[in-house]
Design a protein around this nucleic acid. Structure first.
Lengths: 131, 131
DNA sequence: TCTTGACCTTAAAGTAACTACAAGGTGCAG
DNA sequence: CTGCACCTTGTAGTTACTTTAAGGTCAAGA
C-alpha cells in the first residue's frame, strides 16, 4: 500500500497530478486510511504508469481514457486499439510536418536580419508586410 | 473605418478573437461609433495582420507582445528583435526533435500490432509494461 | 409599419492538462 | 512539544482562444 507521495514518486509524477487523474476519472479512487489519506495498491501503480507512458507518446488524456477502457474490456479487439494508435500517429506526423513548414518560414524570415544596432529590422518588416 | 466583422474578415480571424486581442492588450482599443460599435482603421488592420502572421510562425502572444512593443519603440534595435526570433526558432526546432522521437517510439509500438480480432494487443502490453 | 436576419454589445464559462496556492490536519523525530 | 514533511480540500491560474447567454442595432423586404 502506497501513500500518494510514494505512488507519485514511483510513477514519476507529482501528487497533484495523481489527484487530478482521480478527479477526471482515469484513475480509480483508492481506499482511504482512517486518517483520510489515500491508499494505493499495485493496480493503481500499473495504471499510473500506463497513463504516464501513453502521455509520453503524446496521447491525449481522452485517448488514454479510451485505451484504458479498451484494456479493461474483455471484448476488446486488437483492431480497435490499433485504430486509436494509428490515428494518433497520423496526428503526430501532421504536427511534425506543420512545425517543419513553420521552421522553414521562420528561418527564411530570420536569415536576412543582421542582428545589429540598426533601427529597422527585416523580421519586423516581414511580419508587417503579410497579405 | 471598419466594423469588427469587416476587420476580422480582412485579417482572417473571428470577431471574438479581435475582441480578445483588445482585452489582453495586444490591440489598441478602437474608437466607438455612437451606437457603441467598434470602429477600426488601417493601423489596426496592420497590427492584426502582424499578430496573425506571428502566430502562424508559432510565436506566443507574449512574444508577439514583445515584438509589437519593439516595433513601436523608436529605440528598437534589430538585435533585440533577432534575439526573440532566434529563441523561438530554437524552441520550434526542439519541438520538432521531440515530436520526431515520439513518432519513432510510437511507430515501433504500433508495428507489432496485427490489428485484427485478437483479444490481446501488443500496444496495450507495451503501455502497461513501462518501467 | 413590422419583422426578419445579420450584425453588434457585454460578461462569463468552457477547453486541455496540469500547476500553484491557501488553509488546515497528521505523524514522526529530536 | 515543536518542527517538519506529508496529507487533505477547494479554488484559481496558465494559453489562446471558443462558446454561450442575453440582449441592442440596422437595413431590407412584405
Amino acid at each position: 500500500m502506497y501513500k500518494i507521495g510514494e505512488i507519485a514518486t514511483q510513477a514519476h509524477m507529482g501528487t497533484e497530478t495523481v489527484r487530478y487523474y482521480e478527479q477526471i476519472g482515469v484513475l480509480h479512487a483508492p481506499e482511504r486510511a482512517p486518517n483520510g489519506y489515500r491508499l494505493y495498491d499495485d493496480e493503481h501503480l500499473k495504471r499510473l504508469r500506463f497513463i504516464k507512458r501513453s502521455r509520453e507518446l503524446g496521447f491525449s488524456l481522452n485517448k488514454v481514457r479510451s485505451l484504458l477502457s479498451l484494456a479493461d474490456d474483455k471484448n476488446m479487439t486488437c483492431r480497435s486499439v490499433r485504430e486509436i494508435a494509428e490515428e494518433h500517429l497520423n496526428e503526430v506526423r501532421r504536427n511534425i510536418a506543420d512545425l517543419q513548414a513553420m521552421e522553414q518560414l521562420l528561418q527564411a524570415t530570420v536569415k536576412p536580419c543582421p542582428g545589429d544596432n540598426s533601427k529597422t529590422c527585416p523580421i519586423i518588416d516581414v511580419l508587417f508586410s503579410g497579405k
